[in-house]
Design a protein around this nucleic acid. Structure first.
Lengths: 233, 233
DNA sequence: GGGAACAAAAAGTCAGACTTATATGTCACA
DNA sequence: TGTGACATATAAGTCTGACTTTTTGTTCCC
């Protein structure tokens, strides 16, 4: 939602980035800074700044006498929030969504286990509040409201784990959950079982039951994976 | 090892990046492009490119009339390989190492489980070869050789999982393992139990035993965590 | 055919002038 | 005293043109 068109170079990135991640320029393709600058009607300096950013994402490599070559997908920094957003907006969105959901299924249970040990009283309260919000919006096609509480819930868990690497995945989870609600088909209300699991998870964290928190989260993420299999087989 | 001093802006990043991640400039600190350009004896355009890269790592934010402000640590893109390297080279290295090891303990078991299902015959062979290499170098203070095989082993597992997000963590694991061997105290030969676990893991993957591969990896990463507790309590 | 010299091409660097957004201070007015 | 509009200074943002450096590919000679 954050319009990242900060400056001209940002605007260039907004069209060039998605184009590259979408595979419009196959690996090994060579771009030239001057040509790009002309195409986007910006000065060379602006174009150079954009290329530097793409380079720091490992999307391209700039070499003298050669030009700006597109790197193979396997080298891209797929953890860059910007890259994630670009790819989720593109064609291989389903594939990307699956990768991220599998990532969630690995991270979140461990994060929840840690959260049960380290969560502050305030975080426990937040968690319970989010769970209540999910219950309140779980029926009657209030998907948008449900999403807000769901995202907030998982953010708190990840943050409460006390691990900065986990905490930083809050945005990723938000993108995944938001994508599931918006782009993919989701006519019905959320699965009642999932809602219950969230309530129980808040409970487990509050009680400091690390083992149970981990197990409940495994069930939640397993459900998310299963749901993905049903929607996009 | 990769000297990333590619160009002048790369050289600037090599000193400015570590300085920021080390906390030399507390969050909210304001830098000015012109001043920095003078300090590093480069032109403004070069300095601007460096700032753009720092900005794409969420380390700083550039705003008109204000300057380049350092963002709070919680917003940094801690998955950026460059940022990881800078932080591992800095003062809060132990803390960083622990975060990454916890991350490993979440990711690798799941990755190993997937690898058992998706690994190709060639990958299985590589895995066995690495495990044999670890056995061969596990005694007689051949830590350097052991490290090479250890890193290769985990890289194959992560790649064989078939999940691009997992595969991309190969570099991170390499940094962690390498750091453990080089910087931290490590007089003795590696734990024989760990070596055995790796051999068994290669076996489990080869046999397609997903459950066992996952469990064995949990033991491996648990050992790594425990080791960290002993070395840096 | 192989190696050395050469030429061309594209990124890299620099300096200077100009534009634009915006934080902040000023002042009049309520 | 507080509040709004307005002016101003500041630092980033942009553009241009000239120059440098590295690297690739070709050519020419042995």
């Amino acid at each position: 939602m954050t319009t990242r068109g900060r400056g001209l170079h940002g605007h260039v990135l907004e069209t060039l980035g998605p184009a590259i991640t979408a595979g419009d320029y196959p690996p090994g393709s060579v771009l030239r800074t001057d040509e790009l600058a002309q195409r986007f009607e910006v000065s060379r300096s602006v174009m150079r700044e954009a290329v530097r950013v793409l380079e720091s994402m490992y999307l391209v490599e700039s070499r003298r006498r050669v030009g700006v070559t597109v790197r193979p997908k396997s080298e891209w920094n797929v953890y860059d929030p910007q890259v994630i957003r670009w790819r989720l907006a593109g064609a291989d969105r389903p594939h990307q969504l699956r990768s991220l959901t599998v990532l969630r299924s690995a991270i979140e249970p461990v994060a929840a286990g840690l959260a049960a040990r380290h969560a502050t009283a305030e975080q426990c309260a937040e968690l319970t509040e989010c769970a209540l919000g999910m219950v309140a919006t779980s029926r009657g096609h209030q998907l948008e409201g449900y999403l807000v509480h769901d995202v907030a819930f998982h953010r708190v868990i990840l943050k409460a784990s006390g691990n900065e690497m986990f905490a930083r995945l809050g945005d990723v989870v938000a993108e995944v959950l938001s994508g599931r609600t918006h782009h993919d088909v989701m006519f019905e209300d959320p699965d009642p079982a999932a809602v219950t699991l969230h309530v129980q998870l808040a409970e487990a964290v509050r009680e400091g039951d690390s083992r149970r928190a981990e197990e409940l989260t495994r069930e939640i993420t397993a459900g998310a994976l299963q749901e993905l299999d049903v929607l996009a087989p």
